[in-house]
Design a protein around this nucleic acid. Structure first.
Length: 832
RNA sequence: GGGCGGUUAGCUCAACGGUAGAGCAUUUGGUUUACAUCCAAGGGGUUAAAGGUUCGAAUCCUUUACCGCCCACCA
């Protein structure tokens, strides 16, 4: 036996990985009747390189994978990468900026090409790093979220949800990131504490406070609590409020969302620029007036403030209000939360925008039931509560993004491409009917002969003829302050709308009971609409012609989908759903055999972004829970439990430390001490400790293997002490197995560490030395047998944790003394 | 405001109703031919505080304090 004194990871790791891969051990064989073990690797973003958190993911999942593979289960661990919409687009944009170029200079097509180049570079880098970490995942199954098959799954999912009424397009006040120039979902907004000024202002008959005086320009109501006696007589009345742009009108509404004890108990309502205010407005039929645009600047309707940023406007408005004597007092240090974009940290400006949404409420029941019934188990269990709470308070999920990088929304328009604001006729119809409006058509200032509104309700398609619409619009528009400029704030009186509709459609029922409210709209030049009906067609490929009017000039929705939409499908889109959902040649497809998956392992920080959405989509689209167990790991922190950050300089680069101490040492450091849901402190000294452990195993093996002779056959004349040692080994095997079965990786790893170092090496091997040096051949062999038995079992148990050293040693064991050519394919101790 | 986790040796954590443990750090001693990336021995804790349940509490209950996280957003 010629083994160097110290284990050198660099000398073996690459070679060992090649050995595994070429042995075919990573790719499972479909064995009917055997339940497979399946993990989908959370696809890392293609934004850059892996960090230490990824190393933890790889380690934990590799442990599960190797363990179950050794138990003889067909094991699939599917790797891949995520296109990561906003994140990647931002990174590439930044790169372009360095070159003095911009996204717009390039144009959509060229820009997307550029991002693909980036993906090829960094996607490959990520794959190389994943390999370096020893991941025994099946590269023949590698997927990228923008792969053809996965894109098809996205389109299919969109279509199915749309047809079921679970996806709709609507104008709502959404979280808008002016920097990313896109809407984002509620989950993507982070709240940051900030000290700011708090202005108490005179507001007609009210005094109220705000941190954002500039939004006063968009106020359309004042809300009070229904039980607040102070304002009882004012509810329902309208007031003229003096403002910096002259008087404006507000209506007083009573709403439970108002806290009567806070401040004066009266709140100004800015439906266009606050999600909460938008909801209040919807409940009470309050108009909506947009004053901030998509760039975070004031719109034309704000007179002298037009074009200013919100910050500049705030100062200017305050100055003007001071002059007018409208400011009562200013709190200088008021702490409030501001919403920022989780991708760019820019301040979120809520604005009304036409976006696509997933209706979440209908999806939550099944999602809750799956966890309540135990069909899906979340570890640690306390996160189930968090999960339920999230589902109970969910709002509809905004899935459209105004980006270029991602899955294009599979929607085609016959007529004007999607405008940012809802058309007037559409808004009118939306108020009259619950259901999705399919399309609209407008001609100039009103509705003309031949125009119509097509809408769907409860699966039936109805067409509102121009006569009805004309009447409706006439009724509504009569008192409207129409101007000649771009957009208008209008207020539709619900009763009038309904009356008009009933007059012309006496036999039809009005389904929507929600009050009317204001929409912005734009007039669309008549010529643009000629010979087009405004149909919406859900299709991935460009339809030949519009099925309704035969028009062949169809335009595609400009937006892409939220990256988490495709992530939500990951457990089954990666397996060929929907096209391979059924076998064609009698052999089970990947989807049939491997889905649903077994374990979903990921960080607790993406429970809402990803896990919950996968559960909802899985149940809705495949009718099955996508996995049985969710194991949530914690964050990797530095040795003093601080968050790793570049500014603190405490970031552990997995590549650097694996290079220095070996992959095994890094892996072990990321396992021991890591319990479900809890953060883990890792520093170099810890890694060093496990480097020493790798070396210890190396030397244990050196000792055992160099002392082997006449290794043939099994010798049974064991002493009582040997039997005791072997019984102890069985106990350790049983415990490690139990710990792994119950996801207690840390306990398993720790037990192995202590057992191998302080029992096997310190006691068993030390005690064996005299007997090995004696002349009693029989006893010598008994000891050798015992040591070899413990060594091979130990190597097997350690293998999932530290695959490289253990496999390297395994390769040095004479073939007639091991039960498999590779350790990766060896049988777990106690498994036949 | 609501919820969750934590507080145990200098540091990072384990013990989950039965005499407080490990690793790192520290002290002392070791050139024992598997390993100095090692071995042996030692020091160090009224388990955040108070009260309760119990024969017995770090462990269960209550309250408090502090630290951290998540959700909500009070305008």
């Amino acid at each position: 036996m010629e083994l160097p004194k110290a284990y050198d990871p660099k000398a073996h790791e690459t070679e060992i990985y090649k050995l595994w891969e070429s042995s075919g051990a990573f790719t499972p064989k479909i064995e009917r009747g055997k339940k497979p073990f399946v993990i989908m690797m959370p696809p890392p973003n293609v934004t850059g390189k892996l960090h230490i958190g990824h190393a933890m993911v790889v380690t934990l999942e590799d442990i599960l994978t190797r363990y179950h593979r050794m138990k003889g289960e067909p094991t699939l661990w599917l790797p891949g990468t995520d296109h990561a919409g906003i994140a990647t687009q931002n990174v590439v944009e930044k790169e372009l900026k360095k070159e003095g170029e911009s996204k717009r200079d390039l144009g959509r097509e060229k820009f997307v090409e550029r991002v693909w180049e980036w993906k090829k570079k960094y996607g490959g880098e990520i794959i190389r790093q994943t390999r370096a970490l020893g991941a025994s995942c099946d590269w023949t199954h590698e997927r990228f979220t923008l792969d053809k098959g996965l894109s098809e799954a996205v389109d299919e999912a969109f279509k199915r949800l749309y047809d079921k009424g679970l996806i709709y397009q609507g104008l709502r006040t959404v979280n808008w990131c002016p920097h990313c120039h896109s809407a984002i979902s509620d989950d993507e907004v982070e709240y940051k504490k900030e000290k700011g000024k708090f202005y108490h202002i005179k507001y007609g008959p009210f005094t109220l406070a705000t941190a954002r005086p500039e939004t006063k320009l968009g106020d359309t109501a004042v809300a009070v609590h229904p039980s607040d006696k102070k304002y009882k007589d004012m509810v329902g009345k309208k007031y003229k409020i003096p403002g910096v742009l002259g008087e404006f009108e507000i209506v007083v509404v009573a709403d439970n969302a108002v806290d009567p004890k806070f401040g004066t108990g009266a709140v100004k309502v800015t439906p266009a620029h606050s999600l909460v205010d938008f909801e209040i407005a919807q409940r009470h039929g309050v108009p909506l007036k947009q004053v901030i645009d998509e760039n975070g600047k004031m719109m034309e309707n704000t007179g002298k403030y037009a074009g200013m940023t919100t910050k500049e406007t705030r100062e200017a408005v305050v100055e003007d209000m001071k002059k007018m004597g409208l400011i009562e007092k200013i709190d200088e240090s008021y702490e409030h939360n501001i919403g920022v974009c989780y991708r760019c940290s820019g301040v979120i400006e809520p604005i009304p925008s036409k976006q696509w949404f997933v209706k979440m409420k209908p999806l939550t029941e099944k999602a809750k039931e799956a966890v309540k019934s135990g069909k899906i188990k979340i570890l640690p269990k306390r996160f189930e509560k968090v999960y339920f709470h999230w589902l109970d308070n969910i709002r509809d999920w905004c899935i459209s993004r105004q980006l270029w990088w991602g899955h294009r929304i599979p929607v085609w328009y016959c007529g004007e491409p999607k405008t940012k604001r809802m058309g007037f006729a559409e808004s009118v119809a939306a108020q009259l009917f619950k259901g999705k409006i399919k399309t609209y058509r407008l001609r100039d200032h009103g509705f003309q002969s031949g125009d119509r509104v097509v809408f769907e309700h409860s699966g039936t398609r109805r067409v509102l003829g121009h006569g009805v619409m004309k009447e409706v619009i006439k009724t509504v528009v009569k008192d409207l302050p129409l101007e000649d400029k771009g957009h208008y704030a209008t207020y539709a009186k619900r009763e009038e709308l309904i009356a008009a509709f009933k007059r012309h459609n006496p036999e039809k029922e009005i389904v929507n009971d929600s009050p009317a409210y204001i929409y912005h709209y734009e007039f669309i030049p008549a010529e643009k609409l000629s010979r087009r009906c405004g149909e919406i067609i859900i299709s991935n490929e460009k339809p030949e012609k519009c099925p309704t009017c035969g028009n062949t000039e169809l335009s595609r929705d400009e937006d892409v989908l939220d990256t988490w939409f495709s992530s939500a499908l990951w457990p089954f889109s990666t397996l060929g759903w929907p096209s391979s959902a059924k076998a064609t040649d009698g052999k089970p497809t990947d989807y049939e055999y491997f889905y649903p998956t077994t374990v979903l392992e990921t960080g607790y920080d993406i429970l809402f972004f990803w896990v919950a959405k996968m559960i909802m989509m899985g149940l809705e689209l495949t009718d099955k829970p996508p996995f049985e167990t969710v194991y949530l790991h914690g964050l990797v922190r530095d040795e003093h439990n601080r968050k790793m950050s570049k500014s603190l300089g405490n970031v552990l680069d997995p590549l650097e430390v694996t290079e220095k101490y070996g992959t095994d040492a890094v892996r072990m450091s990321l396992v021991v001490g890591a319990t479900a849901g809890n953060d883990l402190a890792v520093g170099e000294s810890k890694i060093k400790g496990y480097r020493n452990f790798s070396n210890k195993i190396w030397n244990i093996s050196r000792f055992v293997l160099t002392n082997l002779e006449n290794p043939k056959g099994k010798i049974n004349n064991l002493l009582d002490e040997d039997k005791k040692d072997l019984e102890r080994l069985d106990e350790v095997i049983e415990k490690v197995t139990k710990h792994l079965d119950s996801f207690q990786f840390s306990r398993a790893g720790e037990l192995l560490y202590n057992y191998i170092w302080h029992e096997f090496a310190d006691i068993i091997i030390e005690q064996s030395k005299d007997r090995l040096n004696s002349n009693n051949e029989k006893d010598k062999r008994a000891v050798q047998t015992k040591l070899l038995t413990i060594l091979t079992a130990s190597l097997k148990m350690l293998h999932p944790f530290i695959p490289f050293v253990t496999e390297t040693i395994w390769q040095k064991i004479p073939t007639n003394m091991r039960d498999s050519n590779t350790l990766i394919s060896a049988k777990w101790p106690g498994v036949e």
